[in-house]
């Protein structure tokens, strides 16, 4: 089938997409957007997190047909032009990136959190990010980065 949706603000279509392909696969292998990662393909790790109609989802479990006509935003689309999103800047500043494989999914999930919740508590952050597994960092710097980005976001709404 042909599937068409908006990705990072641009209309994209893909032809000969099989119904069983996941949104993650379509983004990575057909649309040249390999930023979102496949680490478990079961929705158990969050590495494939993208925004679907503004809401974070595990794209590995979204069948291609379900994405038809909708708005998708990936890690590649978090930046506004040349300017990184607050969460991206904060991750680099705080040293929250190690191997980087969980990073794209975390950025999307954390970006959504600080957009929705003005000053999330540490417990809020931990719970919101509980679906994003990281094996490297021990999470501490990720938490620091989210706090920093949230504070900056709250100061610049």
């Amino acid at each position: 089938m042909r599937v068409g949706f908006t990705v990072n603000g641009r209309e994209e279509t893909a032809d000969d997409v099989w119904e069983g392909e996941s949104l993650l696969y379509v983004l990575r292998e057909r649309m040249g957007l390999p930023g979102s990662k496949n680490a478990c393909e079961q929705g158990e790790c969050g590495s494939c997190t993208v925004l679907l109609d503004g809401v974070p989802v595990c794209s590995c479990l979204v069948a291609a047909g379900q994405a038809e006509g909708r708005r998708v935003r990936t890690v590649e689309g978090l930046a506004e032009g040349d300017r990184q999103a607050p969460i991206q800047e904060a991750f680099v500043e705080c040293g929250a990136v190690q191997c980087g494989f969980c990073t794209p999914g975390l950025l999307v999930q954390a970006h959504d959190l600080i957009e929705r919740v003005p000053r999330p508590s540490d417990a809020d952050i931990r719970e919101a990010l509980a679906g994003n597994l990281c094996r490297c960092t021990g999470y501490e710097k990720i938490l620091a980065a989210v706090r920093l980005a949230a504070n900056r976001r709250a100061e610049n709404p």
């Binding site: 390999p34 930023g35 590649e76 930046a79 990184q84 040293g95 980087g100």
Partner: peptide, 21 residues
């Protein structure tokens, strides 16, 4: 010194190409 990661930007923008990417 606590220098930031040289590849940090590539990783947070999703442009760091891992093997499958």
């Amino acid at each position: 010194a606590p220098a930031p990661r040289v590849e940090g930007l590539a990783k947070v923008t999703g442009s760091a190409a891992y093997a499958y990417d």
